[in-house]
């Protein structure tokens, strides 16, 4: 059910702001609670910035999903950057190669219901997250 998906190319800080706005609008549309909206927007902000900063840019796609039982939002973040060599390490709280807090990736995983990451060194990284309405 991804026919209503919207895609944003991510090549600058402005695009990260656009991703946040797009996710906020989509989250409101499927009636996510205020807390869940905020969590999803924050996770999207983290992952989109990683796409920009570490992936060297890429795209983000936001789409409503419907399992039949409940509705939600699915977001895909894709880049063709260097990939992540040690995923466990990258997902460790406080681990950063860019002088950040090292909480973006691990924190984003805690902020969503489903978190899937496909990465290969030299090929890029694709992260898919889903947040369901309660």
């Amino acid at each position: 059910m991804n026919d209503q998906g919207e895609r944003v190319e991510v090549t600058s800080d402005r695009d990260v702001v656009r991703v946040r706005q797009l996710v906020r609008t989509a989250a409101v549309a499927v009636k996510l609670s205020l807390v869940d909206q905020t969590k999803l927007v924050t996770a999207a902000s983290e992952l989109a910035r990683n796409t920009l900063v570490y992936g060297g840019g890429g795209w983000v796609e936001v789409a409503p999903v419907d399992s039949g039982r409940r509705k939600g939002i699915r977001i895909v973040f894709a880049d063709q950057g260097p990939g992540i060599a040690d995923l466990d390490l990258a997902l460790t709280d406080g681990y950063t190669t860019g002088g950040g807090l090292g909480l973006g990736l691990s924190g984003a995983r805690r902020l969503v219901d489903e978190f899937d990451i496909a990465t290969a060194v030299g090929e890029g990284t694709t992260i898919t997250v889903t947040k369901w309405c309660r």
């Binding site: 205020l34 807390v35 909206q37 905020t38 969590k39 924050t42 709280d93 691990s106 805690r110």
Partner: peptide, 13 residues
């Protein structure tokens, strides 16, 4: 605000 507090905690800040 409450939603920000919960998000900050989950994020680990």
């Amino acid at each position: 605000r409450p939603q920000i507090a919960q998000t900050i905690v989950a994020l680990g800040i």
